[in-house]
Nucleic acid binder design. Structure first.
Lengths: 342, 342
DNA sequence: GTTAGCACTCATCAAGGTGGAGTGCTAACG
DNA sequence: CGTTAGCACTCCACCTTGATGAGTGCTAAC
């Protein structure tokens, strides 16, 4: 357990470092006023804090920088949650004033704004459509054996996929099958669609067996999970203003990771609900070992729809980001209640 | 007019520079074998070429580098169009072997491959849907005054937009209007849709005036040109391997430009048909004043659908990129004839 | 327990020196 | 007369050196 004074000093060091990106010396802490001790005393404490693993020294006779453990302690115990500034609030308001219709647009736009307010990069994992309910299904033949399958969900989300239609299927029969689907299975979560189609179609199975079979195959294609399209990265260039990214090699490894959709999907979908802070190597991807990732899940009607994440250097303004994400989620709730769909 | 020998030397210098990214000296040209003159002679010619504006000297006693005018002359007269290598062909083939369905997917995927083969960045401007023909229109009500409008074009492209429905419109009447649209206006280019709706609906105007009016408003919303969504950038990180981008500031200005969708749209849609080469300041955007942009338009059934562009440093392997774009467009033609839609 | 003082370490920066790559010029060569 | 060898010159890139200063750890005094 840290003493009161150690906490004070650790907090002061991390705050300083977040601002300056440079190792913090004992003298500068002493001069700041809020820690009323001489540099020598502070040095002693710093040595202790280093031994305990909260601080690191890039080299002898440089100041100290926080270790990952240090950041962790800061986030869990010391950090004061910034109140959102007037300016930030104004930006948020003007954003919510502009009429936003689709949930996804709201979230993406919000992510962009946070990215600009913080100069970090934001990443949005869009809603996973398999949990949404079917609103409408449509099959538009294109000629040949191709058709466009369109799925509209209850949240207004539209998925479309070009599918191949088995040659032995009659199109007008298919239309009946599609009508059946729309009449009987509207409101069913996409995930359950196939199994429900089986059970619902039970009685008519004999007559329409072939069409149902064909429809199943098409659904299979249409609901095939979309790899891209759920992931939106914005403000990638913002992070280039951070001094830790003045080295192009680092930038490249980071951007390469961001481009690797499957990895990012895995990373994001594994995030628990609520606001999460992952510091440095707590993310087990080498490319972001010197970054921190703060994520928040967003939800509609109680069940979570997606994740929004802010990626920055470990020397991140945790307080600001967390309070902005908080402000967003509370405002978003308002927003969606007011004018969104549903 | 340049003499034979001057052309030879200029070509050799540019080829060398493209490979090495470093100023080229007279000795290294002389040693290459294909120019059988002594360094002194070459130096004299280089001095002349510099006076003529084809070469530049970063500073006294450095080698020469090509000027923009030099690159231009190279592209127009000297460059030998690389034959595509076996390896590249193999990559292309395996790409075309995997069944691609949608035109846009083909082009995007192709752009990515070229980007990887060349280590430059590729940009695709997708087809402008207003020139495509209507295949199917659908309106899915979401509850409240919202609905999803879906437009399918003859190329299999799907656009969807959430629209607001005027409160005074009856939904079942609207359905009739939509059916009318699908029956009578299928095959009409989206651009003409509104005017054709007027003329076609002429006779029934009296009875259905209100619905047609409402439909017009909805079409207005649904066809509102999409800002994003037409532009795809891939291989952004590839360009980071180029030595000219080892400075983060340059990277930032470039990436900022790439993120600025409207500017990029303007830049790309102003490109004439065929293969175009814009060198350095020939693009009038400061951010890419030290870059070259090679674009090719792609077409289906004669009318052009979009543009694919490769962005790299002025010291670009022009021959390779141009031949790859060529190979792509010829192969793409095959591809689309074979298995694509239409 | 706290603080002043001091020797020590080490990154950073500017100044000076060196090597090498490359040039331009001149004179000689075929 | 075009081509080439030779040479002095330029200038960048690199290294070394020394000075500066920020910061530490330790010790002794308060």
């Amino acid at each position: 357990m840290l003493t009161e004074r150690q906490q004070l000093i650790l907090g002061a060091i991390i705050n300083d470092y977040i601002r300056s990106a440079e190792p913090v010396g004992s003298r500068s802490i002493s001069k700041r006023g809020d820690v009323g001790f001489s540099p020598a005393t502070i040095r002693n404490e710093m040595a202790d804090l280093e031994e305990l693993g909260f601080l690191e020294q890039p080299h002898t006779s440089a100041g100290r920088i926080p270790s990952i453990q240090g950041y962790r302690y800061y986030v869990d115990h010391l950090m004061k949650h910034d109140s959102v500034t007037d300016n930030e609030l104004k930006t948020m308001r003007s954003f919510f004033a502009s009429r936003m219709i689709e949930m996804e647009q709201v979230v993406q736009h919000a992510a962009m704004i946070i990215s600009n307010l913080t100069n970090y990069t934001s990443i949005v994992l869009g809603p996973d459509s398999v949990n949404q309910a079917l609103k409408h299904f449509q099959l538009v033949p294109l000629g040949g054996d191709k058709a466009v399958a369109i799925v509209v969900t209850d949240t207004g989300h539209v998925e479309n996929r070009t599918v191949t239609i088995p040659a032995d299927l009659d199109m007008s029969d298919m239309e009946k099958a599609v009508r059946f689907l729309n009449e009987r299975l509207s409101g069913v979560p996409l995930l359950r669609l196939k199994s429900r189609l089986f059970s619902e179609a039970g009685e008519e199975m004999g007559r329409y067996a072939e069409q149902i079979e064909g429809l199943l195959g098409i659904l299979e294609q249409a609901l095939r999970p979309e790899q891209d399209g759920r992931l939106f990265v914005s403000g990638t260039t913002n992070i280039l203003t951070q001094p830790e990214f003045k080295d192009v090699d680092k930038v490249k490894t980071l951007f390469d990771l961001l481009d690797e959709t499957p990895t990012m999907l895995k990373l994001f979908s594994s995030m628990p609900e609520g606001i999460q802070v992952r510091i440095g190597t707590e993310n087990d991807h080498e490319a972001i070992a010197s970054c921190s990732l703060i994520t928040a899940t967003y939800a509609l009607d109680g069940h979570s729809l997606g994740t929004i994440g802010i990626l920055g250097p470990t020397r991140m303004d945790y307080g600001k980001v967390i309070s902005l994400l908080g402000a967003l989620s509370s405002n978003m709730h308002l927003m969606i209640g007011r004018g969104g769909q549903r």
